[in-house]
Write a protein that binds this DNA or RNA. Structure first.
Lengths: 138, 138
DNA sequence: GTATAAGATATATTTATATTACATCTTTTG
DNA sequence: CAAAAGATGTAATATAAATATATCTTATAC
């Protein structure tokens, strides 16, 4: 039970950007800082861009920056956008046949409620909240 | 974001057993019923046995049965026992180095709270609750 | 207007993990 | 003791995640 490193990286990118709000930051810089694959990060950033979390600018002198202030970025929203499915149990998957004999068992609803509770907590915090207490490094 | 089919199968085994409390049920029977790999199910059942959810009896005429009434089996406990880790974010993993620059960022705590909320909901229901409304088939 | 620095995109490869399969052992009862 | 059932360990396969490579597009600087 774990989020993918894809989502994990997305959160780290946002945290990194929130710490240097003034300047344009490059993907290469972030990848080297966290010592993770630049190529993978490119996709993460791209998706963050398409979802409106960051603004990317191509070309010389380009890079990325937060599109909204950290106070307006809810962690739950980020996780929702980056994780590609929340099929907590198999019968959630629309591609799946309905469970052989238990079409009305309570499992599905129970896990649905648990998933909502999970995301609710994540929604209760913004990027700004998460940053509290982080000492500036650079 | 999904539980493993391992955990999924465990829940189905328990549901199946709860529906036929009188007799000994064999792994083969359950595997055929749900049309899933018997071999995988063997391990699931074994772990369910070692965790005290089912009582397995070897030998001719053996099989398995619930060790406790369904009212006393909380779904959350089953999930806790079957999933092998809850490292919601990478920095949960004890084997992992501490996050390069953000040793005191709030992410870890936030996800910890979300995970607790998730399991809390699952704890709020027992196997008996999940079974309500299931029509007996056999 | 060309060179360069940046992100965008697609494909392939590698790695990790989950799942399944196979083989053999142990226990129990008839 | 034979058969039926679970127990256990190892190997193979399948799936998904992560990484690598290559090429394309955009924008700025000179």
């Amino acid at each position: 039970m774990q989020i993918t490193s894809y989502t994990d990286y997305a959160l780290r990118v946002l945290i990194y950007l929130a710490r240097s709000p003034e300047k344009q930051t490059t993907i290469t810089e972030i990848a080297e800082f966290f010592n993770i694959s630049r190529n993978h990060l490119v996709k993460v950033v791209h998706q963050l861009g398409s979802k409106g979390f960051v603004k990317t600018t191509r070309g010389k002198g380009g890079g990325l920056a937060l599109q909204r202030p950290p106070e307006l970025i809810r962690i739950g929203d980020v996780v929702r956008c980056m994780e590609n499915h929340f099929n907590w149990v198999e019968c959630f998957d629309p591609a799946q046949q309905e469970c052989r004999l238990l079409p009305n068992c309570g499992l599905k609803q129970l896990f649905a409620r648990a998933g909502i509770a999970y995301l609710d907590i994540l929604d209760s915090a913004t990027l700004a909240d998460v940053l509290l207490g982080i000492t500036t490094i650079d």
